[in-house]
Design a protein around this nucleic acid. Structure first.
Lengths: 193, 193
DNA sequence: CGTAAAATGGACTCACAAGTCCAGTTTTTC
DNA sequence: GAAAAACTGGACTTGTGAGTCCATTTTACG
């Protein structure tokens, strides 16, 4: 049979507890014992809810964090209809990364999952969703004449996503958010023409 | 005493052998035993040349690979004096990543070294060097009137580096090189005005 | 030469952390 | 209200892989 309501709650608690612990600790060094302590579970619970063990749990956490990434950009990301919306979105992105600094929950997590089938899909899906939203925003702006028609929405959205990713990557290694700012700045300029 | 000539050779061999093995295998799963096999060494040699053990060895490999990244872009990166040079450079970068696909030796390696003092410096230094070269290129082009003066060399170089990094990151997770191409394309357009 | 330092081989220790097992408790369901 | 299924605790097994140790050979250098 499936999970009882209580079981579902417990499972979610384990994922969320692990996620929040992984935001402050390097996932590479986190053991099941740490997770047990932090989530007040026992070994049997972990393997009960995640038969695939640590790997499966981490993958679930990655999914959860990927959702968070999008979530944190809402409601702006889904409604890029005016320049003011774009600016608010940009601020939301910058604010997020200014706050979390070099601690990118998803980035460090994914590096632990390099050969788990499904891990790459999590990122691909995230990037896909992200890019699709940006693309939609560009098209909307084009429809209302705010962005010139010569802009290729697909390429521009791709560059935007890549620029942000790269900016965050640099932020993670150097602690400098300037690259992220510069990337978005220039791409916005490019959209404005 | 220091190392004898023979010792220095051996040490270099271990680094290079490990590096080339790490390009085809996920560093996370590579053990000292694998390294012993691949480099035909014994445990004592590894600890003899790298008293800090695996961590120290991997850090050396990271340094080595970081040098390679710059090396592979030469001689173009150091002489971005005309548009033709820029195009050749772009092609060199794209060619490199088209070839190695999702296998980014440095990226996967660094994720194993998240809490090694010195690891972040390797990346910081790489990004710094990279960005400085691009910046110099932009200034040269400005001096000869090929790029308009309104362009901010620092911001633009930062965005370029971030865009490339992000493009590679996406390439690593999705296998799609389109983001890298789009990033460079748009930034080149921006430079051309 | 000869001797001291450096280079090598390979067996051994040891800690740790993932995963297993089973016995006991709670919840669901009929 | 009782059987079945889901849930939980915690001790135990086990494999693995980093790092240690010492004995032996090779190289540097006066």
């Amino acid at each position: 049979m499936g999970l009882t309501p209580k079981g579902m709650r417990r499972r979610a608690e384990i994922i969320e507890g692990t996620a929040s612990h992984l935001r402050t600790q390097d996932p590479g060094g986190v053991t099941l014992e740490d997770i047990r302590a932090v989530t007040r579970t026992s070994n049997s619970q972990i393997f009960h809810y995640f038969p695939g063990g640590k790997e499966e749990l981490f993958l679930e956490v990655a999914r959860y964090e990927a959702d968070q990434v999008i979530e944190d950009q809402q409601p702006y990301l889904s409604a890029l209809d005016t320049w003011a919306d774009w600016e608010r979105w940009r601020e939301a992105v910058l604010a997020r990364y200014r706050t979390q600094g070099r601690q990118c929950p998803l980035g460090s997590l994914m590096s632990q999952l390099t050969e788990v089938p499904g891990a790459a899909e999590v990122i691909s899906a995230l990037i896909g969703r992200w890019q699709a939203e940006v693309e939609r925003g560009i098209r909307t702006m084009q429809a209302s004449g705010l962005i010139r028609a010569a802009i290729d929405p697909v390429r521009c959205a791709a560059a935007m996503v890549a620029g942000i990713q790269g900016g965050v990557l640099v932020l993670r290694s150097t602690g400098d958010i300037g690259h992220l700012e510069a990337s978005m700045e220039i791409l916005f300029d490019h959209l404005r023409g």
